[in-house]
Write a protein that binds this DNA or RNA. Structure first.
Length: 462
RNA sequence: GGCGGGUUGGCGGAGAGGUUACGCAGCGGAUUGCAAAUCCGUGUAGACCGGUUCGAUUCCGGUACCCGCCUCCA
């Protein structure tokens, strides 16, 4: 059995991964709030944890891994979007979730086992909030229910902060009804214009953090193996989840291993609308950057390091993938190379894994290349459609033959002008012209222009 | 202010206390009518200052600079 080692954010150490139940390895990853298109930063955890999902399935068996990723479809950003657009909330969340699926599918991410929507688990949240009140960890004030942070001794353990430190540097707006500035909302009242559910505390809606505690418990139990998300969620979101879950169900351990991916930068800076470097996954796809290329770039840096997106990286990735597809296409998919599994099992060393793919490609081992790349979600048939030759094979064969003959003639007459003109034109149409000792062969590149090629064929080899 | 992370060759980017990462680009060569492609060869890089060690880019401490979180955020 492969030994998997993963960095646990809580201990900041690489730890041996031992599932609670190898027959059902359980992972929870924080998913999207569905109010707008996913930006590139949203894509990083999706792709990173997709690789982990693939690895776990490979090691423990596809039927022995449960992956839950929530959909936050009740949130004040959504309400704001509805208010400003006049659209129905449900219409917004449905549409945004559909977009999310389209975009993440394009990146080759497998769908999680479960994608619970917050609005379908309000009952579980109300029940958990009730338990927290009963146990003295939460209180009702001014129509709100708040979590009493001071009641949980280990609050801050995940992110390495103490409650007193946080108070000292707190920039939180302190609502007058809070017992303590750090207390956070579990439930808040909704006026008639806002979505709301009946509860023991009146008509209202849940705070942001409680959904993850309630849904992870419902689908994975009081104790499960891995909880993941972006590093920015470490505090306060994950800290609050831990506090809620541990206090409501102290008999459980909640998540054993915490994993956080580092942030994504664009051209060395945080992606933001004001810097003008903000874009969505869909923007890139529409610009013609294949999803597979985006995925490759995201995996070329270890998940624990900041990842800088640049167009230069995308171009380089596209050329590499194109070459790999040429090799992989001619081979059946083999099993992954053992080193590939070991590399990923070592805290998801995706950069090292890509280096191995370079080696396999260099050796011309198409079967191992395909099988190994599959663990990274690369070189799949669907994913690689963009790299399929766009040129008509018969047409190319005819052109190649004509050029071969022309070359024989040119060598005799020492007049290469016709041949060179044809080569020039083909190169401009995105065809690579290779002249070996006795033949001319043509290889369509990623930028092949099929229409232009047909014109040239009519001219050169009618 | 509090907490955390980073600094590797022209660029990107890994692992490992002592032996080539790898990719891209560059350079030299083979090949070619010329190119392209391919093949071969080629780079002692590790912010700075100390310490531990026979030996550190790799461990420890400090300095500088950069970044993130602490507020919605993946």
């Amino acid at each position: 059995m492969t030994t998997i080692r993963l960095t646990n954010t809580r201990t900041r150490r690489k730890e041996l991964f031992e599932p609670i139940d190898p027959g059902n390895v359980r992972m929870y990853v924080c998913g999207p709030t569905v109010y707008d298109r996913a930006h590139l930063g949203n894509a990083r955890p999706v792709v990173v944890f997709d690789v982990l999902f693939r690895l776990l399935r490979h090691v423990y068996g596809a039927d022995h891994v449960t992956y839950v990723r929530n959909v936050t479809d009740v949130d004040d950003k959504i309400n704001a979007r509805a208010a400003e657009s006049g659209r129905d909330i449900r219409a917004i969340t449905e549409e945004t979730l559909r977009w999310y699926h389209e975009d993440m599918d394009a990146l080759g991410a497998l769908r999680p086992t479960h994608e619970p929507r917050a609005t379908e688990w309000i009952g579980a949240m109300i029940a958990m909030i009730g338990t927290l009140i009963d146990r003295g960890h939460a209180y009702e004030a001014a129509g709100h229910v708040l979590f009493r942070v001071r009641s949980y001794r280990d609050y801050g353990a995940l992110s390495g902060r103490s409650v007193d430190d946080m108070i000292a540097g707190a920039r939180v707006e302190v609502a007058p009804f809070k017992e303590d500035p750090l207390d956070f909302v579990l439930w808040k009242p909704s006026d008639p214009s806002l979505p709301g559910w009946e509860s023991p505390w009146g008509r209202g809606r849940p705070g942001w953090h409680i959904e993850c505690s309630a849904m992870s418990r419902a689908l994975l139990g009081d104790s499960f193996d891995i909880h993941g998300g972006g590093l920015d969620l470490q505090f306060p979101h994950h800290e609050n989840e831990i506090a809620q879950s541990r206090c409501a169900h102290p008999e459980g351990g909640f998540a054993r291993l915490w994993m956080h991916n580092e942030m994504l930068l664009v051209d060395g800076r945080k992606m933001s609308k004001s810097l003008g470097n903000f874009f969505t996954v869909r923007d890139l796809l529409d610009r013609g950057v294949p999803g597979e290329v985006i995925r490759f770039v995201l995996l070329s840096t270890h998940y624990g390091r900041p990842m800088d997106w640049t167009d230069a990286k995308a171009r380089e990735a596209q050329e590499i993938l194109f070459r790999w597809h040429e090799i992989a296409r001619q081979a059946p998919e083999g099993p992954p190379h053992p080193e590939m599994v070991d590399l990923l099992a070592d805290d998801l060393n995706t950069a090292g894994a890509i280096a191995l793919l370079h080696r396999l490609a260099g050796e011309g081992d198409g079967a191992a290349l395909r099988g190994s790349a599959a663990l990274l979600g690369l070189l799949g048939e669907e994913m690689g459609r963009w790299a399929e030759p766009k040129a008509d094979g018969d047409l190319l064969a005819r052109l190649a033959q004509t050029l071969t003959q022309e070359r024989v003639r040119a060598r005799q007459t020492r007049d290469f002008s016709t041949l060179d003109r044809a080569r020039q034109a083909l190169t401009e149409a995105g065809i690579e012209v290779r002249m070996t000792a006795d033949a001319v062969t043509l290889h369509p590149g990623p930028g092949t222009d099929p229409a232009r090629l047909r014109e040239l064929a009519a001219e050169i080899a009618p």
